[in-house]
């Protein structure tokens, strides 16, 4: 996509670090398509509602990422990884709240409910998944990050290989065993 190459983003990131407010606005505009893509990849579902879900998720990810007023993202890769983390956190928070808050049980569904349902539809309990990822992080932080990028960020293996600086083959081999290990814990 034109104009969103790494160079421009990294230039903006530096300006944001230096406190340039206009650069921050510009950065948000530029990143919008990337984050949206990230969110909609997470739930490339069948129904129309998923656009709204992706939008809601992106908006919340923004709030999480920029609410601290001074994001330090060293580069685009870091920023996208942070986006994946923000989305994970949003889903986790949502799942916790659901568990606690039975009011929603028969009420209307929010976009986040629908996202959570898509995970559940694939036999994944978001909270258990989160626990397994934390467990994984204690002995293989790298694959825990990969899992986060893959599961919550929706990135392709090519993208993840670039972000984590791994060869595609290595990544796929290690992901295969990591996925099996996670599945053996969760399914």
């Amino acid at each position: 996509m034109e104009g969103t190459g790494g160079g421009r983003i990294e230039r903006l990131l530096r300006a944001v670090e230096e406190g340039d407010r206009a650069a921050r606005d510009e950065l948000i505009e530029v990143l919008q398509p990337e984050l949206r893509a990230c969110a909609s990849r997470m739930m490339r579902g069948q129904d129309r509602g998923h656009t709204l879900q992706a939008t809601a998720l992106v908006n919340e990810a923004y709030l999480k990422m920029f609410s601290r007023d001074h994001p330090h993202f060293s580069d685009r890769k870091h920023l996208l990884a942070t986006a994946a983390r923000a989305m994970r956190q949003i889903l986790i928070d949502h799942a916790r709240r659901k568990g606690r808050d039975k009011r929603h049980a028969d009420g209307e569904r929010t976009p986040l409910d629908n996202i959570a349902l898509e995970y559940e539809g694939n036999g994944v309990d978001v909270l258990s998944l989160d626990e397994v990822l934390r467990d994984l992080a204690t002995f293989d932080a790298e694959m825990a990050r990969v899992a986060e990028l893959r599961v919550f960020g929706g990135f392709s293996f090519e993208e993840i290989a670039t972000i984590e600086d791994l060869s595609l083959r290595t990544l796929q081999r290690r992901w295969s065993s990591t996925k099996a290990w996670m599945a053996s814990r969760l399914l």
Binding site: R44, E118, G121, G123, L129, G154, K179, A180, M182
Partner: peptide, 16 residues
């Protein structure tokens, strides 16, 4: 638990 074809644990239909 190994299933090379499944997109798990991502949502069904989420796979590009």
């Amino acid at each position: 638990a190994h299933d090379p074809d499944s997109t798990w644990p991502r949502p069904a239909g989420a796979e590009a």
